[in-house]
């Protein structure tokens, strides 16, 4: 269902959309391209288009790294009908248009780095060939975009300016505390609730990022931007348990903003 991919020559041409049945009530969408970055960007764009268009019969969307699972009511549409609707929507809106999501919000997330809260920082620094300070500086100087909400609404963010990829734990941790700031590859994620993870823990935020008593339970959505700022442990107590809200235009102050050091020190 896709044309043979031309070798990287004509990127302006919309790449083919692959649509494969995943059971009687789901369709797996992806972009046929040799470049993983094109596939990742395409998957994000597909999700944004489907959230906007809401094709008839669609019940749920699950974002993967390079794909989008579309769950639908099989009495309302068939796999083929839905795939065609999606192709038409993409043809109309364009797969390449990827600016910032309209209405994207900015967040500044304070984090405390201590031996207890950042057990993997020495290992991550060593893997990257940086000092621990430079590792944190690379994180704090990065503007991250929330790509998707992973299990339990965990914000998964791409774009950490690490000079290399951070590996996952060989042996996943079984019980990581809520608020843990974790990295893998060049992505970061925050653990919203205590639980297991294979990501490397390099800090902890005193803020509550997800609270089911709030409506919505998180104030962030995919497309929002995040910056981390390292705060001294002495500020933990006063921020602990506060619900994470967007960085204000001016009025509220979610975190004492110590402007994250000099910028551009890329080690």
């Amino acid at each position: 269902m896709t044309t043979q991919t031309p070798p990287a020559a004509n990127l302006s041409r919309a790449p083919g959309i692959e649509a494969n049945p995943f059971g009687d009530s789901a369709l797996m969408l992806g972009i046929a391209d040799d470049d993983p970055e094109v596939r990742r960007a395409g998957a994000r764009r597909l999700r944004d288009i489907l959230l906007e268009v809401r094709p008839y019969g669609v019940l749920n969307l699950v974002a993967g790294a390079e794909s989008l699972l579309v769950e639908f009511d099989c009495l309302a549409v068939s796999h083929g009908q839905l795939a065609q609707t999606i192709r038409l929507a993409v043809a109309g809106l364009g797969l390449e248009a990827t600016g910032p999501v309209p209405g994207a919000k900015d967040f500044v997330i304070p984090m405390v780095v201590s031996e207890e809260f950042a057990p993997d920082l020495p290992g991550v620094a060593e893997e990257l060939g940086l000092s621990q300070e430079a590792t944190l500086e690379a994180l704090a100087s990065s503007v991250l975009t929330i790509n998707l909400l992973a299990a339990a609404m965990a914000p998964m963010m791409a774009g950490v300016r690490f000079p290399g990829q951070v590996s996952r734990c060989a042996e996943p941790r079984t019980d990581v505390a809520a608020g843990s700031v974790m990295v893998a590859g060049t992505s970061a994620i925050i653990q919203p609730f205590p639980g297991p993870t294979g990501w490397k823990v390099i800090g902890r935020t005193p803020l509550t990022v997800c609270d089911i008593r709030e409506d919505p339970a998180t104030s962030y959505r995919p497309g929002d931007r995040v910056r981390f700022t390292v705060i001294p442990e002495s500020q933990w107590a006063e921020l602990e348990g506060q619900f994470l809200r967007p960085a204000p235009a001016a009025d509220q102050q979610p975190a004492p903003q110590q402007e994250g050091g000099t910028h551009g020190s890329e080690a």
Binding site: G23, S25, M28
Partner: peptide, 10 residues
């Protein structure tokens, strides 16, 4: 396999 969404009943 790159991590992807999984349907109920998979």
């Amino acid at each position: 396999i790159v991590s992807h969404g999984v349907p109920i009943g998979a």
